[in-house]
Amino acid sequence: MPIPRFWREIEQRYKGIGSRCKNCGEIYFPPRKVCPECRRESFQNMEEYELEGTGEVVTYTEIHEPHQEFEMLSPYILAIVEMDEGVRLTGHLVNVDYDEVESGMRVEASMRKLGEESPKGLIYYGYKFWPIDD
């Protein structure tokens, strides 16, 4: 991914900053400029909203044929997680064996290395999830 394309979204990827529609209160991640519910009324009426970082697994898979950049991790677990604020994200699920994963499992997001451009190039960071007890 080109550097500017990644750089533009550092705030969101590193800190989990989404957006909230001031008209209806709905929260979005990644942030949206327009609320799909309120549309015109939400334009220029969206505020930043930082996710707490906790949620639960909605569905998951174990990937055995990854893209080249993730080959070293294969097989790895990918999940769709519903954050406590109601938004859903896709990300790696780590620190857990695949056969222990289940839908509804509580998880927390943490910033981790996702990949790198080249050995001396830009390192991409983003969130991954791991199980928590709470």
Binding site: I63, H67, L78, L89, T90, H92, G115, G126, Y127
Partner: peptide, 14 residues
Amino acid sequence: QEWETVFGATFESL
């Protein structure tokens, strides 16, 4: 690409 693939999703995995 920015919110699925970068985070490790393949087409099949979705």
